[in-house]
Amino acid sequence: MHNVILVVLDGLNYEVARHALGHLQAYCGAERAALYKLDCELPSLSRPLYECILTGVPPIDSGVVHNQVVRLSNQRSVFHYARAAGLCTAAAAYHWVSELYNRAPFIAARDRHTDDLELPIQHGHFYYADHYPDSHLFADAESLRLRHSPNFLLVHPMNIDDAGHKHGLDSAQYRNSARGADVLLADYLQGWLDAGYQVLVTADHGMNLDRSHNGLLAEEREVPLFVLGSAFSLSGDAQPKQTELCGTVCELLGVAHDKPVCRELLK
């Protein structure tokens, strides 16, 4: 059994991740991490793909088919499997994650700061403004880690996606927002690894030149997956799918589940 941190850098296109995330690429260069390319499921929209990443179920089957589907998930997520095994769960994430797995609709005064051992996400800091600073979000996540030592922690900042919607894929603002997230990760990654966490860094979807995403273009669908930690094979043969992230995290956690897994990712 391993503890796991899953980082979802919202809206990060694969090619920008490949060239802009210098700190993560330093781990790859030192053969202490590996980078894979994923095609996100369709539609390439946020709420459907949060559900896909965390449950392994594509949007067409989960019923979360666009961002305005405001209800609890009817699928089993990483949080549910971890809780069933008696593990501790936490998330610093956009409020749609709280709506999918804890309570819907989101009521900020009730749900923004969550500490409830009976909920799937026991400990949470949930934000509801797309420009909520990534620096604050990473600090929120680290506060949860230090206070609760969660077995599974979701870290989900939004500023890359926000910059893409305001300025588009081919903009300094979008690329610099990705670089900024990499710098923030540099403050935490080694500490997480030293504490024994296995770390996955991915994205829900990419971004297009129209300052949006929803379709089939490579820049909208191709997203990164960095993996770091002693449990990963770092094999160039792995071809992970977005629908396999939930099961792969469950394998790392050592919890029972019925989701597809990319076994080539793991030792």
Rank of each mutant, 00 (worst) to 15 (best):
Y36H: 14
L200S: 01
A181R: 02
N3Q: 12
Q68Y: 12
G56N: 07
M1E: 13
H80W: 08
A104R: 06
V97I: 15
H23S: 15
D187Y: 13
S212I: 08
V261R: 04
V70N: 09
Y197L: 05
A218M: 04
R103H: 11
S230K: 07
A20W: 00
R71I: 04
L12I: 15
L12P: 03
A238P: 02
P59T: 14
L72Y: 08
C40V: 14
L119H: 08
R211I: 13
L54K: 03
L216R: 12
F232T: 07
N3E: 11
G180A: 09
T55E: 01
G196I: 08
A238L: 00
G22F: 12
E222L: 05
T55A: 07
A141Y: 06
A90C: 14
Q190N: 14
T248S: 08
G29C: 08
A34C: 10
Y14S: 09
L35D: 06
L252D: 02
Q190H: 11
G168W: 03
T243L: 07
E219L: 06
N214W: 13
H156P: 11
Y27I: 02
N74K: 09
A108D: 10
P224G: 08
P224C: 14
R71L: 08
G86N: 13
G63H: 06
E15D: 09
E31R: 12
V261A: 06
P150G: 04
E251I: 04
W96T: 05
L117N: 00
L38G: 03
S62Y: 03
I53N: 01
F152H: 06
R112G: 12
R32T: 01
F226R: 08
T202Y: 08
S98R: 05
A30I: 03
V57C: 08
G206M: 05
V57A: 07
L100H: 00
S135V: 14
F138N: 10
T248L: 00
D170A: 10
A33W: 04
H131N: 15
D61M: 10
A34S: 07
G196W: 05
H123Q: 12
H2T: 10
L24E: 01
R263K: 10
A17I: 00
L42N: 10
H19E: 15
W192D: 00
C88K: 07
K241Q: 10
P43N: 07
C262D: 05
V70W: 02
D10L: 13
R263D: 11
